[in-house]
Amino acid sequence: MNKIIRHSLLYVLVALVVSIVLVPLMYLTTISLSSNIELGDFPKNFIPNLTVELEAEWDEDREAFTIYRYATKERRQALYRSDNFEEMARYFERYLNIYTEPEVLENDIEPIRETDEVIELRYRKNLFANYQKFFEIFSGARDALINSILAVFYTILLSLSIGGAVGYTLARTKIKGKETIGLAALVVRMFPIISISVPMAILLIRYGMFDTMLGLAFIYSIPNIGLTAWITRSIFLGIDKELEEASYVFGATKLRTLRSITIPLVIPGFAAASMYAFIIAWNDAAVALLLTDRNETLALLIFRSIGATGAIHYASAGAIILIIPALIFTFLLKDYINRIWG
């Protein structure tokens, strides 16, 4: 009996913790699927609406149709008044995310002209309208996405080549000062890169790399090269040297050995290191803010979008676009999770 109670308490606790994590994200997702008008609702929907329910009524005095919406179950709110269906369709698209033809509206609403009938309307909401509008309205959004990908790509290249070489040296050669190098790699891993971004702005202008993704990648590589060195070192140590030698003995060429023995064993480590690089470069907005001017990254664009009032639903859509790849890569990395902490 006691055990059952304890067991169910455990599940309650687990459910509580999980919902503390997931509920905010669900709300964010729903907001990113909301229309401009739905932004005004309170309480906010937890699950996105798939349809929009409206009411139309003929307004004698103004000689126009009034469109109402229930902000809550009790509260009917007048939104719009017009008898021009073209304009009405434009209004529906812009503020209610209903993509429909003026003729459809005319069909539905025209019959109540000059009557006192109230007609209920129900239209399908274009669920992903904000995602389209995000790229239309923030006209730099597409470039920003490309920039983010470029920054990631350069960071990976830099970290793997430079860091991989260090890792290999540490694992496979007899050099002096291995411990110092290892320690240095750890120190740069923890080094707060944003605090060197200030002088870096001037240096990058001198190097001709200010406002370029390559310039950003150099900064992102500072912690990442150290990290890559650590990971690749342990990978190279783990590869049995004797296995490679055995391969030579059986007459394999050096290239073949590399291809069939070494590389397959090394790839996972390189992949993991790449993913760290991805996360650092993809998630950063701070360094990009200081070191770019015209070429935004996606994260920076999202950071800046906060000032644009009345646009939080577009910004939310952008945030979701930013989140998805970051989530994917973190999940791929979850076995190493405690090492990317911070």
């Binding site: 997931l22 998630n283 930013l322 989140i323 970051a326």
Partner: peptide
């Protein structure tokens, strides 16, 4: 999940 989220998001 939460730790994976970019700060801007």
């Amino acid at each position: 999940i939460p730790m994976a989220l970019p700060q801007a998001a």
